[in-house]
Design a protein around this nucleic acid. Structure first.
Lengths: 381, 381
DNA sequence: TATTGATGCGGGAACGTTCCCGCACAAGGT
DNA sequence: ACCTTGTGCGGGAACGTTCCCGCATCAATA
């Protein structure tokens, strides 16, 4: 069918992949010309350009990425580390948030032409040292984590959360947790709640620390006592127990055990609950019921969670979504910009959260009842 | 401190990375010699070898992985796809099993010198087409999944589960689910259970299909009716509901609704439960209690789960571990062997599971009580 | 008809490694 | 004295791209 050029014929060998020169020879052009044609660069006549493309297509040419990388000096590889180095041995990813963040980050990176390489938190420096990484993404580094320092020391740019702000070669993307916490607490207040309680895990993560700080500030501004219950660790079990603590004995004032004077006493039972721990909304709801609360009658409930089941409980649970997909996209876009336009300046991006207001946090008389399909949640910034 | 050689001094530039020739020049040797010294090949005098190494170390030389790859023809990159393409949009990884499998696979691969590239299930062919992948790992491909065909068509070896057995260029690692199911059912039988029920999600995954088949065979061999309850989908909610169905109304004979004559009637309540769905053991245990069962008095319970909380419930729950770390290691070892010793023959590895027998599946009089520390679970192959 | 400028294409170097050779030199045998 | 064998090291090609050039060719202008 085609002319000449059977320079070996097909053996049963692994297939000696077709190169640029092969296409060039077949098309009667030079590799330079074919390269220009395929990359849409250079000055070529439309006829030649098309001829080159057609030939390449016909021969099933696929460029050798490694050679490209070598020439370009960048490998288009991004390392991806998830936190919790010391504590949990590689039991990351289990939370819906991290799972979705990871998936979305990989997908977005891929669309931008970068591949995400998984770097389990236990990995030794020597194991990734000879990977041609253009950058490393570190999600939620623990306070004591060496990984950021190691990577920066190796001369590789780091993208992480706001905890790396200001460091040379480091960039950050973070969720606007301060606004988020405030918006929930304001929402509670609007709905008439006066004794909101915060349930948050006791971790070294910046995220949780910032939640706690935002809550503290808001309480101070509104002259309310801080009601916080700390869960020992993340995960459904401990968090549900913490919720039960909050609902049973009433909140514990953080920091000062002596301030617990107003603790038990039925009249001080919480009237709103903000659970910042990725607990399963149905489980939290059920815990509330077990303790005799009617939601949203006696207790307004908001969970920070990506769990889709929140929409299908009775009542549906208001959630604060951290929008992992949005964070992933903002992060990768930021990263690509820095990598390809080479600004070495430290820089950051703040991503807004989304509050999906559902029945669990709205006083009854406010409730919109529509037949058939759900009206969809009200959305606040 | 060191002699001479300031051939530019340090600018504020990105750092023009030190190459092999730089080391060679500094050491007064040729790049060939330095390369041989660092790679421990060739014929070199100990003195020269040491000199080269020392100089490289001093100059902070790190080889350019891309150049190496180009020369070697292999990029040491492995694609990693997780299943559920159509159904759930990138909500993989949430289960402890997949999370741990993923982490362990990445870690093992890294130790063997390969990097794992995350390929979200939605990714287009065009997105990974120009990655220099040496192989692609596909975990639990759905029955209708195109990904395996696409990758094979691109001439890239595939490593997946047993569903790819026999295909050219495909290799597999799988868990010995047949033995596993049998060992659990035998265990139930030894403990005196006569009406075991299987709870399994309704999915297109090979794993679940094989569980179902093994159960069917075992029942046939032992002359017992098949008692199966299918959960609509994986995830704690649906599975717990399925468990409740199993415990409340009694089991449903699969396939033939007319065979349900012996269904309700208190005397036919199940006396053993095998939950193959990664449900949280505490949740399942609680569901049993709600329905008035005493575990292990009235009901023996075994969960297929990697959830560590199983050890800490009261009673501790017997689990069948699929040993994700073992699968990861076996899989990567197999992969490396195929890649580096080039056998194109289709081949596979079967990995045994591990039954951690705890109190939830042992009749009281069998129970070993020891003071202080736990005696550790009995382990069956 | 020369001179300029633009256009179309190809030659060759470079990216940083590894590896096949070949050369120089020393030691041992005849 | 020669030839052989072995050891220690380096020169240069190759991996497959991209990109800087330079060389033709041709139209438009002086």
């Amino acid at each position: 069918m085609t002319s000449g050029s059977r320079h070996g014929g097909q053996r049963s060998e692994p297939t000696p992949r077709v190169r640029l020169v092969d296409v060039a020879r077949e098309a009667g052009l030079s590799k330079t010309t074919v390269s220009a044609a395929l990359n849409d660069t250079g000055r070529l006549s439309p006829a030649v350009r098309e001829k080159a493309r057609e030939t390449a297509r016909r021969m099933g040419y696929r460029p050798n990425a490694t050679a490209r990388q070598l020439r370009a000096g960048r490998a288009k590889l991004i390392g991806y580390v998830v936190g919790e180095a010391a504590d949990a041995p590689s039991v990351f990813l289990e939370s819906p948030y991290f799972a979705r963040l990871t998936g979305a980050t990989a997908a977005t990176a891929l669309r931008r032409g970068y591949a995400l390489v998984l770097l389990p938190s236990g990995s030794l420096q020597s194991e990734w040292a000879d990977l041609p990484l253009d950058a490393v993404v570190v999600t939620d580094p623990g306070a004591d984590d060496r990984i950021v320092d190691d990577v920066l020391a190796a001369g590789i740019p780091v993208f992480s959360d706001r905890s790396v702000e200001g460091r040379q070669g480091a960039h950050w993307v973070d969720v606007d947790i301060d606004s988020a916490v405030r918006s929930v607490l304001d929402h509670f207040r609007e709905q008439g709640a006066r004794r909101p309680v915060l349930v948050v895990p006791d971790s070294t993560t910046r995220f949780h620390a910032e939640v706690f700080a935002a809550h503290r500030e808001w309480c101070a501004e509104h002259g309310l006592p801080e009601r916080v219950v700390r869960a020992g660790e993340p995960g459904n079990g401990p968090v549900v127990r913490a919720v039960e603590t909050a609902l049973a004995g009433g909140p514990v004032a953080d920091g000062d055990p002596a301030a617990g004077g107003d603790r038990p006493g039925g009249g001080d039972r919480p009237d709103a609950l903000l659970v910042v721990a990725e607990a399963s909304p149905p489980l939290v709801l059920e815990a509330a019921r077990r303790h005799g609360y009617d939601v949203p009658g006696d207790l307004l409930l908001v969970c920070v969670s990506e769990d889709a089941t929140a929409e299908h409980t009775e009542p549906p649970v208001t959630t604060l979504s951290l929008r992992p997909e949005a964070i992933a996209e903002a992060g990768i876009d930021h990263l690509v910009k820095v990598l390809e336009h080479g600004s070495r300046e430290p820089s950051g991006t703040l991503v807004p959260t989304r509050l999906d207001v559902r029945a669990s946090s709205v006083r009854r008389h406010d409730q919109v009842v529509s037949g058939g399909s759900w009206p969809g949640p009200r959305r606040l910034a």
